[in-house]
Design a protein around this nucleic acid. Structure first.
Lengths: 157, 157
DNA sequence: CGGCGGGTGCTATAGTGTTTCATAAACACC
DNA sequence: GGTGTTTATGAAACACTATAGCACCCGCCG
């Protein structure tokens, strides 16, 4: 399973267009996509799989000597805050957001064999959870929806 | 919000009955609920909130000198494997399972202010996700469903 | 007896994330 | 342009989360 399964709606399939989209978003929202942040985003965008913070750090060091854990975590914090990337909490890794234009809390499928992931386009699940939460007087702010299992390619091969 | 919101179906509300349920389950399934495992389960059951591994370790040390990280993690592994507890991946903490008898992948509400949690009884969300996954050829094995936000009590007070 | 398997004790280490404080760059305003 | 404020970065140390590896013990079974 590649990191792109659906072709029924527009979202970036290459890192270049993703970078461009984020740049535009930052310009129009007045956000500062500093060199470090851009580099980190680029590393995430280029990876075909979720990437871990210290992997990013190692790669970042090549292009930015002196990078330390806070360097990476600050960049990740920024990118997360503005929803340019997602954190997969169950594996402590980060992926680019495939629909950065829309507000969303997308569910992820995570293959435990090859670590490939798919971000589902579905909103329904998140809405249902929000509604259930509100019925209990709980004001929802964010969700983590992650399905582990084995992807088509891995179970075939 | 207390750690018990629904009254519409049976589940344990006190740690004693929970412990009993788990003991029964272990007896009938031939599992070894060793003293350490039982202690850890008891600590989790007594807590009103999700508990972190090293909190458990500190508490365990009082009753079991020489306990070290592996001690705790082994016990947790056992309890997770047999679904007597859940791990909340987004906060690295553990809670007792409120419906240990049924197979389930329950969604959790997690209050970011007071850290209280609710395990929803709902199956629908998990089923929907499973179905969506299967339609993509993905064989689901387990889910992490966690909603963060602010609970009724915290937004009132 | 002897060996196997699961559980435990213990040390060390890997992996993940944060605090702290000092410095520097960008921005807002007069 | 200067000044004050906010925001980003550099750097070291630290805190938290989790696992590896190996020795040992004990119960079980042939």
């Amino acid at each position: 399973m590649a990191n792109s399964t659906c072709s029924d709606h527009r979202h970036h399939h290459d890192s270049a267009s993703f970078l461009g989209e984020v740049e535009d978003a930052c310009r129009s929202r007045g956000l500062r996509l500093t060199p470090i942040r851009r580099l980190v985003l680029e590393l995430i965008a280029r990876a075909k799989r979720p990437v871990k913070a210290y992997e990013l750090l190692d790669q970042l060091k090549d292009r930015h000597a002196g990078a330390a854990p806070p360097t990476i975590y600050r960049a990740l914090e920024f990118l997360l805050e503005h929803r340019f990337i997602h954190k997969l909490e169950s594996i402590n890794a980060f992926v680019g957001c495939h629909h950065p234009s829309r507000e969303h809390q997308a569910p992820f499928l995570i293959c435990d064999r090859c670590m490939a992931t798919v971000e589902l386009a579905d909103d329904q699940v998140a809405s249902m959870l929000q509604q259930q939460a509100r019925e209990l007087g709980f004001e929802p702010a964010g969700q983590t929806l992650e399905v582990h299992g084995v992807c088509a390619e891995c179970s075939a091969g």
